[in-house]
Simulated assay, not measured.
Amino acid sequence: MSRLFRDADGGPLCPQGSVVCIGAFDGLHLGHRALVRHAAERARALGLPLVALSFEPLPREFFAAAGQAPRPPRLSLARAKFEGLCSLGADLVGLLRFDARLAAMSAEAFVAQVLAGRLRARAVLVGPEFRFGHRRAGDLETLRREGAAHGFVAEAIAPVAVDGERVSSTRIRAALQAGEFGNAAQLLGKPYAIGGRVVRGRQLGRTLGFPTANLRFGNKMPALSGIYATWVHGIGERPWPSVSSLGTRPTVAGVEPLLEAHLFDFDGDLYGRRIEIEFVAHLRAERKFPDLAALTEQMHRDAAQARELLSLDVLQRRLQPASPPDPRTASAATAEKIA
Rank of each mutant, 00 (worst) to 15 (best):
A306T: 10
A103G: 07
S54C: 02
V162W: 02
A52E: 01
L35N: 05
R202T: 13
L312D: 15
F181D: 03
G201L: 09
L13H: 08
L309P: 07
L315C: 12
Q177F: 00
N183L: 15
V114P: 04
D291F: 11
S242W: 06
V160P: 00
F82K: 04
D313H: 15
I227N: 00
E336F: 11
T251D: 03
A78Y: 04
G94W: 06
V51R: 03
L283K: 01
A24L: 12
E308F: 13
G67M: 10
R3S: 12
H38C: 11
L176M: 02
A123V: 15
H262Q: 10
P325A: 14
H233G: 04
F181Q: 01
L125A: 10
F264N: 11
L295S: 05
P70G: 08
S18V: 05
P159N: 09
A112C: 00
P321Q: 04
S323M: 12
P222I: 05
I275W: 01
G268V: 12
R71C: 14
R44E: 13
T248R: 13
R287D: 11
E155I: 08
A112T: 00
Q320L: 15
F217A: 09
L125H: 06
D7E: 15
I172G: 05
R101A: 14
T296A: 15
P72V: 07
A285Y: 10
P325W: 01
F130G: 08
L125Y: 12
T207E: 11
G117A: 05
H38L: 07
E260R: 06
R33G: 05
D302W: 03
L46S: 08
L35Q: 01
V255A: 15
A34Q: 12
L315W: 14
Y271K: 11
A261W: 01
G179H: 03
F63D: 08
L75S: 06
A156Q: 02
R136E: 13
L92T: 07
G151Y: 12
K337P: 01
E165Q: 12
F98R: 04
N214R: 00
E256V: 14
L75I: 02
L96E: 10
A39P: 02
P241N: 07
P239D: 10
L30E: 03
Q16R: 15
G209H: 06
L48M: 12
Y192M: 04
R101V: 11
